[in-house]
Design a protein around this nucleic acid. Structure first.
Length: 556
RNA sequence: GCGCUCGUAGCUCAAAUGGAUAGAGCGCAGCCCUGCGAAGGCUGAGGUCGCGGGUUCAAGUCCCGCCGAGCGCACCA
């Protein structure tokens, strides 16, 4: 059990015991929160319960702290408790316990940091889901990295996670894509063909058109137009998806499921969903269209599900998709990551999910703010239709996958960011990611040297690790499981890069302070102990890097 | 106009749940390798946490107002 939990339990018990003895007046005890003080002088953990109890108990916080402290079972020889004004209970772990944790880390190896949930959830994380009408660009990269990082963290926290990509392969945008590609294909064959209105003007479609032309020649052009458009489009869709998949996997973003919107119609799930909605009484027919009466559920307005043309809207298929997620697939929890431009869609989808009889709380939608592109001082709007986008591919080529991941992973989803490719290129050279990876490479180098000298540190005596720099690393390593817990609870992967930096700093400082591999015979024992610590540091650092989806290099 | 999100160091961003002295990277001024990787370590300068109220023992964090930015307010997705 995490030390944090143990302390919370101890304090809770002490509080009820104090009330039983009459040392504290009876009354409800608030949930006990265990914090990590910033200032090391305040120990390793802090509890501010006395401050919170003071008013109700009509006692000074210090007095409460003084009555609670003796009731805490410190004889475990793990913890030391101090009372600090204005009423904190500060806990410090004992050195021996810290030292022993080095063995613990090594024992757990690459599983270190993993949590086991009493009630593991089946969680689906759906993210990116870029329309397959064009390549992935920088804006999407943010959600992609966020989603994959979040999925790793939830899995580490003990949940069963599925990463899913929703392919919007139906609807008006897709048909515009089909027609655009068909025009480009004809043009590639040297024929006159006008681009459709609202067509996709990007160069990538010109390329795609040429590709189709070189692979299929005149064959498609010879077909009746409707069939030709459809056949060309389907080829284009497959090619586009392959491209998207490849680009995403170049920054370590992969999916377990690629779910097709069209399949909702083919499998009858769409029809079933509409039937279900009809039964709930939330459907309304008016002006020739079918509406979802979301105003009945407190929404600002109703929304069209089926246009007067008979065509379903995106909203309709999205409801069917979410019925699929919850009712067919049976996920306990679904997390969608959307760009801020879809923010207006959040509450109505939740309302619709509720109408299907699913507790809306089971659906979490994380809105990540859009990335605004900048060229010098000028803001540029990224548009797939107009074709002025910085693609993910360009970004990865210029900046590198690891730097790219670290960059996006470091920022909280709600931060609005400006992205300047020139600046990103320039910054990639001194990107903090290398600081973390350098620590790992340095460790690998130390361990290489030790092996060359035939040193076996498995019997190293951890009680020799007493230098503040050594103890600092151990303390820092032990933060990881707690961090995974809070990141999983709050769905905030962005704490991880910073933690990795902190851990690397602790290691670099240790390296500066303590000679690890020493040739002095009298240093043999401490050398083995330190090698053990270095090995443990490697494990934790590598775990961070792997959770972030980045390489843990042995050399740089 | 209404709704959602954001405003922290010169720049890019943190601050875990409301906690004790607001941090890091880059940039800037210095210092440290004749033993394990200097892509490193150390020191320093740099802040009215957009502005004004409020709640609280305690507010960058919660509430209200104002200013500013992004996004949304379709029978688009």
């Amino acid at each position: 059990m995490l030390m944090k939990r143990r302390i919370a339990a101890m304090v809770g018990k002490a509080a009820t015991e104090a009330q039983r003895q009459g040392a504290l007046p009876p009354g409800p005890v608030p949930e006990i929160e265990v914090e990590r003080p910033q200032n090391p002088e305040h120990g390793d953990f802090a509890v501010s319960l006395p401050l919170k109890l003071a008013r109700a108990a009509r006692m000074s916080p210090m007095a409460i702290a003084q009555r609670l402290a003796p009731l805490l079972p410190t004889e475990e020889s793990i913890l030391e408790v101090n009372i600090a004004p204005p009423g904190f209970l500060n806990f410090s772990v004992r050195q021996q316990w810290l030292q022993a944790q080095v063995e613990e880390v090594i024992r757990e190896g690459e599983r270190f940091g993993n949590l086991s949930q009493e009630l593991p959830q089946r969680v689906q994380v759906e993210f990116v889901s870029v329309n397959p009408t064009g390549p992935v660009h920088v804006g999407h990269a943010r959600g992609a990295v966020l989603g994959s990082g979040l999925a790793s963290i939830l899995a580490a926290a003990g949940h069963q996670v599925t990463k899913e990509y929703y392919i919007n392969d139906a609807g008006a945008q897709m048909s515009a894509f089909y027609r655009s590609l068909y025009a480009r294909y004809l043009q590639a064959l040297g024929r006159e063909a006008a681009m459709p209105e609202n067509g996709y003007m990007g160069d990538y479609l010109v390329e795609l058109g040429k590709e189709v032309a070189s692979e299929y020649g005149e064959r498609l052009a010879g077909m009746p137009e409707v069939e030709a458009v459809s056949a060309t489009g389907k080829l284009g869709l497959e090619k586009m998806l392959a491209l998207i998949r490849a680009d995403l996997s170049s920054i370590g973003v992969t999916f377990d499921v690629w779910f097709s919107e069209t399949s909702l119609y083919q499998s009858g799930q769409y029809q079933e969903t509409m039937e279900l909605l009809k039964q709930t009484g939330y459907l309304a027919q008016r002006e020739g269209a079918i509406w979802f009466a979301s105003t009945l559920l407190g929404e600002d307005k109703d929304n069209v599900l089926v246009r007067s043309t008979g065509e379903p809207t995106y909203f309709a298929s999205d409801i069917a998709y979410h019925r699929h997620k919850f009712l067919a697939q049976g996920y306990d929890r679904v997390i969608n990551i959307w760009g801020a431009d879809h923010q207006g869609h959040v509450s109505r989808l939740k309302a619709a999910v509720g109408a299907l009889g699913v507790e809306p709380k089971r659906l979490t939608i994380i809105i990540s703010q859009l990335v605004t592109l900048k060229q010098g001082t000028e803001a540029v709007r990224a548009s797939k239709r107009k074709g002025n986008i910085v693609t993910l591919r360009e970004l990865v080529e210029e900046v590198g996958a690891d730097a790219c991941r670290f960059f996006f992973l470091s920022r909280s989803p709600e931060s609005q960011m400006e992205f300047d490719l020139e600046l990103a290129k320039q910054q990639s050279a001194d990107n903090p990611v290398y600081y973390v990876q350098y620590a790992h490479a340095r460790i690998a180098s130390i361990l290489r040297l030790a092996r060359e000298r035939r040193l076996n540190w498995s019997g190293g005596d951890v009680t020799l690790l007493v230098d503040p720099a050594e103890l600092d690393i151990i303390r820092k390593m032990l933060h990881l499981p707690e961090l995974i817990e809070t990141m999983a609870e709050r769905l905030e992967p962005h704490h991880l890069p910073r933690y990795a930096m902190d851990l690397a700093t602790a290691f670099h400082w240790f390296y500066q302070q303590c000679r690890v591999v020493s040739s002095e015979p009298s240093d043999h024992a401490i050398t083995l102990a330190r090698l053990k610590l270095v090995d443990a540091s490697r494990i934790v650092l590598a775990r961070c890097l792997s959770l972030m989806g980045m390489a843990a290099p042995e050399w740089m």
